[in-house]
Design a protein around this nucleic acid. Structure first.
Length: 420
RNA sequence: CGGAGUGUAGCGCAGUCUGGUAGCGCACCUGGUUUGGGACCAGGGGGUCGAAGGUUCGAGUCCUUUCACUCCGACCA
């Protein structure tokens, strides 16, 4: 893509209302835009691209683990929620409204009931099990206090998966598989994270684990063991506990952003909703279920909370809207522009996500392009400038802002190696 | 829902105490000069001051009511 044709409204001023780094930077770098209602944001082109990239990583790993992607309507009949009693339990957080026929509906905050309904209408035999179905879809929760930009919006993109099994043992096997799958997803996204024991909250069920992105700004307090991999949310462990219940090692307190949560549900939903299958003994049994969520839009905030500096965002390779930014120092210089166009085509041909900063208006000089590169936080910038007469370009690494001079003929290979 | 704060141009703000017909920076438009780290000069466009009501000759400013947003708390996949 060419910068000159993209809507990227970067700003120098820090928005007054934003407190968190991710909130400020995503606004300043033109990824998102405040709509006016609390917790509602427009995703601008850069934000949409980044969201889609993160979403693709989530989808790929789930598909590899044998999950089935589906798509449910965001509007759900309230009657489904009444079957499980959650219409009352969710309270005001569940946004309700009526259609022209006075029928009650909700904007889905999560989809256990809707997905159980999908499965009970289609799965009748143990031979069809196990089954894991998921969607990556917008959710709406009328939060008491939405805040911190994408961290706790009212409308947010969530991956919600639901597994159905004949036995508890098989559900636990899937639970472990999802834990491994989540670890792959978070690792691919370049995140530093911790899996912790957690409370099951309003979803209900037996065991649950949370995937915490480690960041000082996190809303959750967690206890982690420095000797083994044990970790727990303070909701489920005494905050003054100093010894690891697993290995006896030292526990220390830290902050985390809850970006994923997996639950062993059992029959909490299948029983009241009469979602049953016929077992090998020809008897009806309720499905044993698991449910697994990832806050996809929250991941964007989490990635930035963990990866930013005073100049702007520092996206990880898997999440950056573009991995390479070609900066044409003087876009009116024909030679520079020619070299830049050629490099742009070559990188595209090699499958590299590249942005060409070809802006040639008189207000957009080299300084502006550099500032935008730093603020947006793409992984690398290639500066096509004066050195081009000697066959050299400058390669800048966003993470440490280091600069190196590279021969033009080698730059494609160097970049591909770095992005590997 | 309790506490605190803020609503004035697209964004960031001043003006409100002490009422006199709206201003600054950024952004935007035109022309010129610049061109490797958010340039400079000149000119220009854009606001019924969150909303409603009231006091007054006159309200951004005073009074009443109301709405929204932000932060802290409670709550929360």
């Amino acid at each position: 893509m060419r910068f000159s044709r993209m809507l990227i409204p970067t700003t120098k001023e820090t928005p007054n209302d934003a407190v968190l780094a991710s909130h400020k930077l995503l606004l300043r770098a033109g990824f998102i835009q405040f709509v006016g209602g609390a917790g509602l944001y427009n995703f601008l082109p850069l934000g949409k691209i980044t969201l889609d990239k993160v979403r693709a990583v989530v989808k790929e790993e789930l598909d590899k683990a044998g999950c089935n992607e589906v798509h449910l309507p965001i509007v759900t009949p309230l009657s489904l929620w009444e079957e499980t009693g959650r219409a009352d339990k969710f309270g005001k957080e569940l946004l309700r409204f009526k259609d022209r026929h006075e029928n009650s509906f909700t904007l889905s905050p999560t989809n256990e009931e809707a997905m159980v309904n999908l499965v009970r209408q289609t799965v009748k035999s143990y031979k069809q099990l196990p089954l894991n179905v998921y969607q990556i879809n917008w959710k709406f929760r009328d939060e008491v206090r939405p805040r911190f930009g994408l961290m706790r919006g009212r409308e947010f993109l969530m991956k919600d998966a639901y597994s159905f099994h004949a036995t508890t043992e098989d559900m636990q096997r899937e639970f472990d598989l999802m834990e491994q799958t989540y670890k792959k997803i978070f690792t691919r996204l370049g995140l530093e994270f911790k899996v912790v024991e957690a409370d099951s909250g309003a979803i209900g069920g037996a065991g649950s684990k949370e995937f915490m992105i480690l960041a000082d700004s996190g809303e959750d307090t967690i206890m982690v063991c420095d000797a083994c991999d044990f970790g727990a949310n303070v909701e489920v462990i005494a905050e003054d506990e100093t010894n690891c219940p697993k290995c006896g090692g030292n526990l220390s307190q830290t902050k985390g952003i809850e970006a994923g949560h997996i639950f062993q549900l059992g029959t909490t939903y299948s029983e009241p909703m009469k979602a049953e299958f016929l077992n090998e003994n020809q008897k009806l049994e309720p499905f044993v279920m698991g449910t697994y969520g990832i806050g996809v839009s929250r991941l964007l905030a989490g990635i930035i909370e963990q990866n930013h500096d005073d100049k702007g965002c520092v996206w990880t390779k898997a999440s950056a809207p573009y991995n390479v930014d070609i900066i044409v120092a003087k876009a009116k210089n024909e030679e520079q522009m020619e070299v830049a166009e050629k490099l742009y085509s070559e990188l595209q041909a090699k499958g590299v996500d590249v942005l060409l900063d070809d802006r040639a208006d008189k207000k957009t000089g080299f300084g502006v392009k550099m500032k935008d590169f730093e603020l947006i936080g793409m992984n690398y910038a290639v500066v096509i400038g004066n050195d081009i007469s000697e066959g050299k370009v400058e390669l800048i690494t966003r993470k440490d802002l280091s600069k190196e001079s590279v021969a033009l003929e080698n730059i494609v290979d160097v970049l591909i190696e770095k992005l590997r």
